[in-house]
Simulated scan of single mutants.
Amino acid sequence: MGVRDTDSPLAPPAPPGPPAPQERMQNFLHTLHENVCQLVGAAAASLGRELYGAQGLARAVCDALLAAPRLPDHWLRRVLRSALRPLLLHCPPATYRDVALPLLRHAAPLMVVHLSQRWEYVTSLYESGKLEEESGSESQEVLEDMLVRHLTREHLEVLKVSLVEGTVSTEYSNVEMEEDICGGGGGSRAPDHVSELGAMVLADPVAGPAVLHTILRALTWNDSTSSLRACALAMPALRSALASGAVGAADADGALAAALHALRLHGQHDANQAALLALALQAYEALRPVFPGVSCVLAAIPDVDAADLRRLDDKLAAANTRPAKLDKSKRDLFKKITSKLIGRNVGQLFKKEVFILDLPTMHVPKDKPRNAVDAPEGAGIDNLFANAPT
């Protein structure tokens, strides 16, 4: 049932000769699925309120596109990119509860389970060494790894539209999608607060935990681009969930632990390191007054200095009386506390520092002569003929 994606760069080449009946049926199912997704997305952009006012729209979309168990990654990617994302992007505020919220109630729990299982599988491939073998870039394991990465980024784009009203253009072509995936995913400033739909989603008892857990888990999955995108959504989502009372003590510890784990995994990349340090510090600053036990997560860092933790708590307590901002002293102190966790490149793991002590002093004349004739030792013309035969 749709085992190929002809639009994907990972698609295998078609065999020569006329297609077999089984392949013709697969192509028909795939084309039908693709056309339905494109039709739903186009209707969301063009019909507007006439579409969103239809009774049972969310249930019909979920039953038609997301009801089948264990959908392949490339099928889910098409649903997210071509159907679900346009539906949420063009949804009027008046129909948030009737359309957008039911869609996310169905899709968010499904996706967090599916992506968690897929990343566990990809992680097992890395641990077993199958992705490191020299079997070429066309092996099944490599293709599955790439598909899981692309699917994760697609789902984060859907969450971005749902939570913070993503600033991407309405028409999102395949070329732009591939450029965005290869380029690392945008350098726009991270939002501070969620949108009206985002607050509604995070306060929902079904969709809220699933969305928040997806973002926090995406921080720690083995894809630096997905981690960076999730980092931009994590703090607004955490603030909104905290304000709605949907965060418990265990959730607070897990959120800070996820940021620190991501810092260990992706800290070798400068962009990820800066974003994750800011996220971890902001999360600690927001959670510490409500959940004092969250300090135990930092205290569990190997070789951490208790005096530094006390100084950080004092700075955060003093900052509560002033407008919240990340000043340099807090960032430097937090980076010092977490320095043992920050991941480094393989080329820097076993670097031996070289220190040369007691170097001789170099005497540099203050006023250099303009030419050789004005030098104290002269031009040295007589030395040219010193060894000449007489």
Score class of each variant (00 low, 15 high):
W75F: 05
S82A: 14
D63V: 01
L71T: 03
R78W: 00
L76I: 08
L87M: 15
L88N: 03
R78N: 01
H90C: 11
A68I: 00
V61A: 08
P86V: 02
D63A: 15
D73H: 12
L66Q: 05
A67N: 11
P86T: 02
R77E: 15
A60I: 01
C91N: 11
A68T: 06
V79G: 01
A68E: 14
R78D: 03
D63C: 03
R78L: 12
H74W: 11
R78Y: 01
A67M: 06
A60K: 11
D73I: 13
A68K: 06
L80G: 10
A83V: 02
S82V: 02
R70G: 10
R85I: 01
H74I: 03
C91G: 04
A68Q: 09
P93N: 01
L87H: 10
L80C: 14
P93M: 01
R59S: 13
L71C: 02
L87P: 08
P86G: 06
R70F: 07
V61F: 07
P93C: 02
H90N: 08
L88F: 09
R77V: 00
A83H: 07
R85A: 05
L65Y: 06
A94D: 15
R81W: 08
L84D: 01
A58N: 03
P69A: 08
R85C: 10
S82Y: 15
W75A: 14
C62R: 01
L66R: 02
D63F: 04
R77A: 14
S82T: 05
H74Q: 14
W75T: 13
L89T: 11
P92R: 11
H74T: 04
L80T: 12
D63N: 12
L89D: 10
H90Y: 10
L89G: 07
C91W: 10
R59I: 00
L84I: 10
R78M: 05
A64G: 00
V79L: 09
D63S: 13
P86R: 05
R59C: 00
P92T: 12
R77Q: 14
A83M: 02
L89Y: 14
L57W: 09
L57F: 09
C62S: 15
D63W: 03
L89K: 15
L80Y: 10
R59N: 08
C62M: 06
C62T: 13
P72L: 11
A60S: 14
L76M: 15
L57Q: 04
P93D: 07
P69F: 08
L65F: 05
P93R: 09
L57M: 05
L57N: 03
A94R: 14
L71H: 00
L65D: 04
A68W: 00
V61Q: 03
L88R: 05
L80R: 03
W75Q: 14
A83G: 10
H90K: 01
R70Y: 07
L80H: 11
V79R: 04
V61W: 04
C91A: 12
A67D: 13
P92K: 07
P69H: 08
L57R: 06
L71K: 10
C62I: 04
R81M: 05
P69G: 09
L57Y: 07
P92S: 11
L89C: 03
D73P: 08
A67S: 15
L80I: 15
L66G: 00
A83T: 02
R85N: 11
A64I: 00
L65E: 05
R59T: 09
L65N: 06
P92W: 07
R59H: 08
V61Y: 04
R70K: 14
V61C: 08
P93K: 06
L66F: 13
A67W: 04
W75Y: 08
